[in-house]
Structure formats: C-alpha cells, structure tokens
Design a protein around this nucleic acid. Sequence first.
DNA 1: CTACTTTCATATTGATCGATATGAAAGACG
DNA 2: CGTCTTTCATATCGATCAATATGAAAGTAG
Lengths: 204, 204
Amino acid sequence: METAIAGKKIGRPLSFDRDAALYQAMLLFWRHGYEGTSLSELTSAMAVTPPSIYAAFGDKKRLFLEAVRLYLSGPTTSAQLIAQAETARAAAMAMLETSAIGFTGEATPAGCLLASSTISCSAAAADVQAELSGIRLEIEADLTAKIADDVAAGRLAADVDAAGLAGHVMAVIQGMSTLARDGAGRDKLLGIARVAMAGWPPAT
Amino acid sequence: METAIAGKKIGRPLSFDRDAALYQAMLLFWRHGYEGTSLSELTSAMAVTPPSIYAAFGDKKRLFLEAVRLYLSGPTTSAQLIAQAETARAAAMAMLETSAIGFTGEATPAGCLLASSTISCSAAAADVQAELSGIRLEIEADLTAKIADDVAAGRLAADVDAAGLAGHVMAVIQGMSTLARDGAGRDKLLGIARVAMAGWPPAT
DNA sequence: CTACTTTCATATTGATCGATATGAAAGACG
DNA sequence: CGTCTTTCATATCGATCAATATGAAAGTAG
C-alpha cells in the first residue's frame, strides 16, 4: 500500500505512468467537471483499470483533488504571480493575461478547471465544491492583501477599494473562463483583460 | 396529450399547479445545475410523481429548458435592460447592478442559473450546454450592438473597443455569479460592479 | 527453483440514474 | 347511472454510477 519514495520495491511493478495518468485525468476533469466525468471515462483516458486507479489514487474525490493540485502546480499560479509582482497593478495584469492565455490553450480544454469543474454540483459533492471555493477565496485574499500593501506604501490612494478591485479581477477571470468555454479566443480574452485594467486607479 | 389553452377539458384534472411546480424545479436547477439535479429530487420538491412530470413537461431536458425560460422571463432580463436603456453605459450599469442584486436574493439560490447550471457537463449534455451558451452569446451580441450604436451616434469615441467592453461586462457578470456562490454578499457584488464601470470610456 | 508481495484483469456489487408499464382514480359527458 | 378521457400512484425498467471481490500475473528475495 505504502508507495515507497526510495528503495527497491517488491511485488508486481506498476504498469502505467502515474503522472501521465493523472494528467489525463486532469484533462477530463477540466473538460467535463468533477461530477460530469465518470470512472469509465477516466479508465479509458488513463488506460488504467478501476482497481489500479483506486489503489493508486484512493477514490474519485481524491483523484480529482490531486488533479486540481496538478493544475495549480505550474509556474504561473496566481499565488506565484502575486508574490513575484512588484505592484498590485502588475499582479492583476499578470493574472488576467495569464488567465486569458491559459484558458485558450490549444492542447488543453477551454476555460479554467478551478473555475468550472465544481460550479454546480449535486448535494453529494458539496464538500468538493467547498474545497475549490476555498482555493478561490484564498487567491482573492492574496490579491486583496497585495493591493492593501500598495495602499499602505502610498503607491495607491488611501480611498482605494481594495476588496472591490480584487473582487473585480477575480470576477473577470472567472467570467473569462465561461467566455472561453463559449468559444471566445485568446485575442478576445486579452481584449477583455485590457478593458478590465482600464479602470485601475492611478499610482499616486 | 394536447394541453388545451382554452375550453373545458375532460378527464381527470391536474392535481398540481404547473407553474408552481416549474418554479420549484427552477430553484433546484439553479442551485445544483442541470445534471446535478436528479429526477427524485425534482419529484420531491415539485410534489409531483415521475409520470406526471413526464406528461406535463416532456423529459428532463425540456423541463430544464422551460425552467431556464422562466428564469429569463422576468422584467429585468438583460435584453430588456439593454432595450430600455438610453445609452450603452446605462445598459451595462443596469445589467451589472441587476445581476448583483439578482445573484444575492434571499429567496433564491446564490449566483445565476444561466451562468452556473451547465458550465461543466458530461458529454451527454453537450446540447443543453450549447443551448445556454447561445443565450449568453445573444445577450453579449445585444450589448455589443448597443455600444456600437453609441459609437455610430457619436456618444462614444470611434476607437472604442465595443466587443471588448461588452465582453468585459459579460465576464464580470458571469464571474459575479461564481463569487456569489462562494459566499459574496450583495454589497460586495455592487462594489465590483462599480469598479467594473470605472473603466468605461467617457462620453464624447 | 519456491515463497512472498504487489498489481492487474475480469466480473460484479448495490445504488441510483432517467424514463415507463400498468392499472386504479377522478372528473366530464351521454 | 355508465362510458370515456386523462391523470395519478405504484412498481419497476435497463443503463450507468462509483467502488470491489476474486484470483491470475509479474516481479523480488531466498
């Protein structure tokens, strides 16, 4: 049961690439959402039989959450962008442009896995829904703090609505995901990002 | 089979209020989405047995689409707001504020039925998904046309990005739906609406 | 080789999905 | 009343859901 990190393992070896299988699962969840993706679709796409999936990932919920973690593990995570940006404005613009690009990739489904996979679920999936909601709120809180930093440092006026600005950026990103799913291309989303930043308060 | 619009009907009368039952179905679809709402939940909430549902509404898909039509039948539809507004700016503001209020009603689920109920579906529901996508695109096209009207009339500068402005408003509305589902209150959404309008181009 | 451990392939579990078959119940007609 | 039409209540349909029981297969260790 215990997957040894190091050391030789005894017993029959794994016949599939765990990372590759998880990536395929992520693509399916990305496209059809958590409840919209069935185990039979997963086994087909991952090329792994049900018992192996359960042995390797636990159950469907844990597989999904691990796929979400994979989705959020890239170098352009919102948290990363916020941490690396010099100003809140730069952070917001980077988040919007990165989203516009990431939501319209050729090799991936349209939209955002985090924004679309558990928007509407049955009552049975309320806990998974809450988990992703928490991730979204955390990103928003990070951005709000980044804006508040600029206000505290005098780079933005004292009467700036930090929560409103951060909420607006988050809303635009979530909305761009839906527009991408409705067929909007990269240029269109980048144009929306530009409009969204037009109202950003000037530096003091 | 034919539900007579007028004239006396023979046979056993309906034992339930069709409109009231449809409203209850709408609330369920609003909260849990199209595929996340089961027939057994619908029969419970509507207080109607399965054969009666199928006799009165067809099947689950047609019941859902009729619920969507009910949702979009109010006096504050986006199409209505756009048609009645004097300027594109007023239309956009009305849409944003009406959404902020409608997404945070006390007697209704959080968010927007149109924005959330078919964001991620299984492959089997692709047609329903496309139907709602078409409605969203139609609203966006109406708003784009309204902006273009203002440009043509000289009320907005000629270099205004009508598609970008309209797409931004649509994205904010879709995103506000997700934020409302994540717990955002009415004041928060109204603040986001205010920020969203801050970047609107000035009247010429 | 044999013993041991782990994974894999097949078939299947109980539960729930959307949708109905069946016949009784309820009203309008004559 | 009896006849007709429609709806209702019960039970259930085949399909699919997520999740497993079972035993064979594939390696390491001795």
